[in-house]
Each structure stands twice: as C-alpha cells, then as structure tokens.
Design a protein around this nucleic acid. Structure first.
Lengths: 353, 353
DNA sequence: CTGAAAGCGCTAACAT
DNA sequence: ATGTTAGCGCTTTCAG
C-alpha cells in the first residue's frame, strides 16, 4: 500500500548536517576514531578524544540514526497503534508505554486509528518501514484479516493491550471484562433490582462484547431477562435510550453502562430528566472516571487496572524484544503470553449502596 | 541457523528482512527496476511491473526507511515533546498533531518530560539523531538555556504550543492566559465579590504566571487586594488551602483556580467540608473539563481553544517544513509567527450566575 | 524500458 | 591507538 510518492521531495541540501567524516577531516583523524569518540571514546587517546569532542561541539555534529541503522544498529523505536490518544484509557496507556520505552532508551511513535481499519493498516505499514523494533497495538477490529496477515509476516514482537487480535496467538494483556461486568450485574441483582438494562455502543469491540457476555451470564444465572441497548454512542443517543426505557411501563430498576463515556452521557440524561438516582433508577458504570466520586450521587463503577495494563504490555514487549530470540516467537516461553487482569468494583452511591 | 534443509532455496539469514536487491535477484531484474516499482511503477513495462510486484508480495518485502533516508529522502517523522500525554490538554494536542501529521503522510514521535528539563534535553537530542523534520515542544521551563542552545543549532522548524520558549523568537501558539484570567476575575468582581483568592500550583510555568498576572491586574484595577496561594498541587494541598482560607476571619467570597486539576481538587475540598457553592463561596476555574457542566453546582470556567491551539501549532510546523526555505528560519515571513488565541468564559452556576 | 555503478553516513573488520 | 576499506539498503545519474 502506498508505495508511491515516497521519494525525494525536493529540498536542496540546504540543511546539510555535518557528517562524521566532516568531523574526521576537520579534526585531522580517521573516521574510525570519530566513530569511537561518539560511541563512548574508549580505545582513544585522551588528547585525541578531547580534540575530536571539541570539533564535534564546534561543528554541531549530531549522529545520523539512519546511517547507524543501516549498518545494523537497532532503531530504538517502538510503535503504539491506538484507537485514539485522548480517551483517558489509551492516554494512560500511552504515557506508561512511553516511560517504559524511555527506560529502554527507545522512542515511541504513536498513531491514532479512530478504530478505522484502513488507517490502522496504513499505520502498521509505515511503522514497519521505519523498522520499529516492537509494536503495541489495540486493534480497531477484533478480526481484521488484513492486519493479521500483515502481522504474521513480521518477525518483530507484537503485543495487544486491551483487545486481543483475532484468533491469533499474539500475546495480549486485557482486563477481565466478562468477569467485571458479571460482578457488576450481580451486585445490582443483590441490591434487589430485577429489570436491569444494559446500555452501550460499539458492540463490535472485543471489550464491549465481553462485557455484554458477562452481563448476560449474570442475568441468566439469576433468571432475569437481559435487556440491551447498543445504540448509545453520544449524549443524544443516551438521552434517546433513557427516553425509551422510561416511556415503557416496565421501567428499569437499574442501568449498567459499559464504558466511561456511556456512563457519563447516561448520567447526564438522567439528571436532565430529573430521574432521581438511585431512588428511581440505579446506575453502575464500567470504567472509573475522574469525577465519579465527586458527582452527587457518586457513581459506582468497575475499575480497570489501566496503568498496570499498559505497563504489562510494554514490559512484555521489551522482554520479547530482548529475548535470546527463540526460534519461534509464538512458542517462546511455552505458549504466547496472555494476561488477564482483575477489575475492581468501586462501590459508591449510584447503585444504591 | 546452521541447519538448512535441502530443497529450500531462499535467503541466507532468515531473521533479516528481504532487501530490494533480494527482490531484484529473485525477479531477475535490476535494482533500479525494483526501486521504480516500489515508487509507483512508472517507466516500467507492465509485465515486469506485475512480476516484480508478485515477487515483492511473495517474499514480503518492506522498504527500509533508513536506507531511503540515507539517500536523501525525508524521514517523515516529526516530534512532540510534551510534559505528559495523559493531561487532557496535551492529550488533545497530541491527537490533533497526530492527525495533521498523518495528513502529511508523517509519523509522530511523542515524548513525555514530566516537566523535567533533563528528560526534555534527552528527548530532543534523541529526536534530532532520528532526524525528525520538525519539532513541537511545550518546554518544561520557560527559560532553559540548554534547550535554547540546542534548538538554536538545529535548522528544523520548531513550534512551541501553550508555552513560548524563553525569550527566543521560536514561533509559538498560546492562549491569551493573562486576558483569560483577567476576564474571569473581573467577572467575579462584577458579581460583587471582594475577597477573591487565587489558588494554583506550579507557578513557574509560563501559563500559570500569565494567569496570575491577569488576576492581579484585574484585582488591582478594582482596588482589591490580591491573595494568592501557590501551593495547590493535589487534593491534600487543596484541602489545606481551603482549610487555611476558611479558618481566617476574612473568609474569601470567591475562589479563582488556575488550572483544571486545581479546580477539581478545590471543588472537592469545598464539597467535603460542606461549604456551599456559590452561596458561601463562589468558584471559577481556568480550563474547562468534561463534567464541569454536570456537577451540581456546575462550574464556571475559562475555556481554552485546545483543539485549535494544537492544530495551529501543527499546521504552522508543516507550513514551515514545506516553506521554500527562507535563508534564515527566524526572519522567515517577516518575523517568526506568534499566535495568541482567545479564551471564552463559560458561565455556569458556581460563580453565582 | 532497463541496468551498472556510485554513493548517502556510519560501523567493523583488518591492518598498521 | 588509529587509519583503510568494505559494505548496510536504497536512489539515481548515465548508458544502453
């Protein structure tokens, strides 16, 4: 894809950086010596060292990573392909990953796909050309054949945080979404609620699917009838969902919202219609958010170990990057690693607690 | 790597990526032809083209960007050096910048400095070695001589979003912090409040300094006495500040908080102590935040044009990158660009409106 | 339409 | 301790 027009866009060598051999010439030494100097300066006469260093300083020489890479050096770049970077979840991931990368003396390229499969492919492609040493990717779709095919060909380690990649055996780190939703639903049931509706959007996402599964399991186990609205993607649709739910004669006793934004939108819709929480209806959300405890009523949520998730993914990645290179990446340490992190139910008042 | 089963031709080093000349050999053509193919395929016989493409596909060839760069191609990477990426402000910036970069077929390396000058220097240095084509940097300190010196040496465009870099003439895009705070303070004054305290932390940051200035100007202009507490950096210190303010006999009538987090922490501290807002004390915050309108009371804030700020910075950067390269980067288009964006006062109820 | 060959900036033998 | 030299993977004259 897009193999075209990659070349030489104009530009004379106006911004010509001085090269290593410029330095060598200027300093009256060989390139090897300069090379040694910029790589630590061992095996170089102290005087030469000082002199070369001064020349480097004088001409403002900065090593060209591309050239180094070409001679076999590591690129020291990893990539993070996320749906977006403003969503607190992925923003946190990105920050943790960056810090881990930094600790490994590496840089991080971040790309945002907006869950668009094409953008995702383009990103991965670009990242591969840039020879990133590892890839952390939260796939736009749980089963993009294209992505899988592309990833299959590559030999660099790949870790999928938050969302596994299809039915591949690419290592992943996820929260136990199903369990989290099950526990949440059970909690509502224990409160005595029977008509518990589940609100969400984007039900093609792995995480949402899993949470839906947990919700249904808990409902069924209790002999209750699951009721799902999967059209909630913004304030307007949340308001519509609330409208619909409360127009019926069978008003819900409680609401389970499957993600951060949905919880907030729903909460606002409820507040706008003066539907008292938790008296008229309880609400419990998946994903904690900054002001959940400050709102009145405060919001009970399922909290995910975001930081740990991001860190685990990054650690895992570097571990694999530095591994003694097992013959087969998949069979490395007895099966590819798949981590599932536990979630926590944070009881506040919106559920009736 | 020693054992090679007979019958398999292909590649010496299984671990390595196939190179352009591998493809050429396998396809029985010259490297030039393959190069043409991966660059669009013009001036190549359709049959040859198809054949070469199939070989590329077959061996899974991916062009090596480093090699291209070495021959003079653009790196197609820009860098964003931010204090952090989880703070909604910079997270938004990062996302916008990434999208602009994508539109220019470029990748974005993000680094988080935590406002640490050393980390910042290390980041910039690494970015320079990687030959980023442009740099967007929100400096850790308004006046790091080191940074300035480093940046002075480089010929790539640099843009400073949110915070200008020292007294350099590096182009920047900021919000009118001073004016924003002045307008906010004035608004409180017009409500009739007289003892208006200003709460903040990190008063070495450019933005905070400017906002403080605006606050003081407005207070002085009204003949009121400014009262500033600059120690508020988290919940505990916010609580302490509130404690202190309300212990005195001269309780404040209103509070002006100079950033997002400070507003929230202060709001919580007030709520915790059952200090009624806006009856007992009004509060107005700098920076809008997601639930500001949903909290009860809702919070009046100074809203910044974050998206625009990020986009302007990125646009400016690419503009300069693509510029016909003025002899002197600073004097480019008659002085380096300095944008100051307007803020908006969003009136909600916490101020007494 | 196609290929041979000369580098791009750097490192790594291999001399000296 | 230091210089020489051959590439790394790719693009690009310059000849066919």
């Amino acid at each position: 894809m897009a193999l075209r027009s990659a070349g030489y866009d104009d530009m004379e060598k106006h911004n010509k950086h001085p090269t290593l051999s410029d330095v060598a010439k200027r300093a009256g030494v060989g390139t090897t010596t300069v090379s040694r100097v910029i790589n630590g300066g061992s095996r170089v006469d102290p005087e030469t060292l000082a002199h070369v260093r001064s020349v480097i300083e004088a001409v403002g020489y900065v090593p060209n990573n591309a050239a180094r890479v070409l001679t076999g050096a590591r690129t020291k770049i990893i990539g993070f392909v996320a749906p977006g970077t403003v969503d607190p979840f992925f923003a946190s991931c990105a920050e943790v990953i960056e810090s881990v990368a930094r600790a490994h003396d590496s840089l991080l390229i971040v790309t945002a796909t907006q869950n668009d499969v094409d953008k995702e492919m383009a990103s991965v492609d670009a990242l591969l050309r840039h020879r990133v040493e590892g890839l952390i990717i939260a796939p736009a779709s749980p089963d993009s054949e294209q992505l899988l095919a592309l990833l299959k060909r590559t030999t660099i380690p790949v870790i999928a945080p938050d969302r596994p990649i299809g039915r591949s055996n690419i290592p992943y780190v996820v929260a136990d979404n199903c369990m989290g939703a099950r526990v949440a639903t059970k909690h509502l049931i224990e409160h005595g609620y029977e008509r518990i509706a589940c609100l969400t959007g984007e039900d093609t996402l792995y995480t949402i699917r899993e949470r839906l599964r947990g919700y249904r399991e808990a409902m069924n186990a209790a002999g209750l009838i699951p009721r799902t609205i999967t059209s909630v993607v913004d304030q307007a649709s949340a308001a519509a969902a609330v409208e619909q739910l409360f127009a019926s004669s069978e008003r819900p006793h409680a609401l389970l919202t499957l993600k951060n934004k949905t919880t907030i939108d729903t909460y606002e819709a409820l507040q706008e219609r003066d539907i008292s929480v938790p008296n008229s209806v309880a609400i419990l959300g998946y994903d904690d958010f900054e002001l959940a405890a400050t709102l009145r009523p405060s919001v009970t949520v399922v909290q995910q170990p975001i930081e740990n998730l991001g860190r685990a993914a990054a650690d895992l990645l570097f571990e694999q990057m530095n591994a003694p290179h097992a013959s087969d990446p998949a069979s490395a340490k007895g099966g590819s690693s798949k981590l599932q992190l536990r979630t926590r139910l944070i009881r506040r008042s919106s559920c009736g607690c």
